[in-house]
């Protein structure tokens, strides 16, 4: 049901793009105005979201004890899974951001005959997420060839590696196929596993389907409904140099693709996709577990409120305590 709602939303966006691309002035709207608006919402929303998060105080070190904490000298600590130094935290963060170690530790719970509850390792999410994210990254870097003039070497190198199978013309890009594969795997996981399906909402399915529609429209444009790539690059470089133009004849499929990308950018800061910035602010990932070495003071403590020892407390309430027959240390 929720997946159908998301699908309808994405289809509605595609229909809107198709209609706007053919009405007079519509191509100007999608090609010259919308990208700027979407980009501004993306950057502004992203910053606002991160600044909003940064206003929340984090009172304690929140370690996730996936490894031995540093304690006595003869007990070997796990430096990266339970780091006590900034360097350890940086390594843990790098491993998290580039290799998704939290997902690697994902578990599943199953009920067997007995009834017996069994927990087991579940690596699917980790594997699918790796396929998806690295494909997406490669696709984004490859697209820089349409933004940058002249095209720098690293973009050409990645495009070359991506197309090295030399299948067909234009060459099939591996990352395009694996991106679709990754999205489909993540989508199927959500739809097939009952536990995940139960907690999935429209805002879980919608970004997946939106990204799928972007990937499919891109693949259609590259291999089937060809567009003039030189005009496309002129349009995009025009945007990046603040002299937007709509050159030559560019097919409607390009405007559908661009419109969907703009939707993704504008939707990004208000969605779960903000985990891109949020991963760096995860308290369980970005804090050293040094609670036993360093005294951490609550950031919201009012400095006017002084520490109140038990002796002071007893001094203040001795009469009442005696009256209530509570034992006191000092008579």
């Amino acid at each position: 049901m929720k997946v159908l709602q998301s699908l309808l939303l994405v289809l509605a966006l595609i229909v809107i793009a198709l209609v706007v691309a053919v009405i007079p002035g519509g191509q100007t709207l999608i090609g010259k105005v919308l990208p700027y608006l979407a980009f501004a919402v993306f950057i502004g929303g992203f910053i606002a979201k991160v600044v909003g998060w940064s206003r929340s105080p984090v009172p304690f070190r929140i370690p996730t004890t996936a490894g031995q904490e540093e304690s006595l000298p003869w007990i070997k600590p796990n430096r990266f899974d339970n780091p006590s130094t900034t360097f350890g935290v940086i390594v843990r963060m790098l491993l998290e951001v580039t290799m998704f170690r939290s997902l690697f530790r994902n578990t599943k719970a199953e009920i067997h005959d007995g009834p017996k509850l069994v927990y087991g390792s579940s690596k699917y999410l980790w594997l699918f997420a790796l396929i998806f994210h690295y494909s997406f990254l490669t696709v984004v870097i490859r697209h820089l060839r349409l933004f940058l003039n002249p095209v720098p070497g690293f973009v050409q190198a990645i495009s070359f590696a991506d197309g090295f199978l030399q299948v067909g013309s234009p060459s099939v890009m591996i990352s395009g196929l694996t991106l679709v594969l990754g999205v489909l795997l993540l989508l199927l996981r959500r739809m097939i596993r009952p536990q995940v399906r139960y907690i999935s909402l429209v805002n879980d399915y919608f970004p997946l389907l939106l990204i799928l529609s972007i990937a499919v429209s891109g693949i259609l444009m590259r291999y089937f409904l060809r567009v003039d790539i030189v005009s496309v690059k002129q349009l995009i470089v025009g945007l990046a140099t603040f002299h937007p133009v709509i050159p030559g004849q560019v097919g409607a499929i390009f405007f559908v693709h661009l419109f969907l990308v703009c939707c993704l950018m504008a939707y990004f800061p208000f969605s779960k996709l903000m985990h891109m910035g949020g991963v760096f602010l995860s308290p369980t990932r970005n804090m050293a577990n040094n609670s036993r070495k360093v005294r951490h003071i609550n950031p919201w403590n009012d400095p006017a409120i002084k520490p109140h020892s038990y002796a002071d407390y007893e001094d203040e309430f001795r009469e009442f305590m005696k009256e209530a027959e509570i034992p006191v240390e000092k008579e």
């Binding site: 820089l144 933004f147 940058l148 990046a240 002299h243």
Partner: peptide
């Protein structure tokens, strides 16, 4: 990055 890289010049 693309805006900084092109520096307002659409190039050849």
């Amino acid at each position: 990055f693309p805006i900084l890289y092109n520096r307002g010049n659409a190039g050849h």
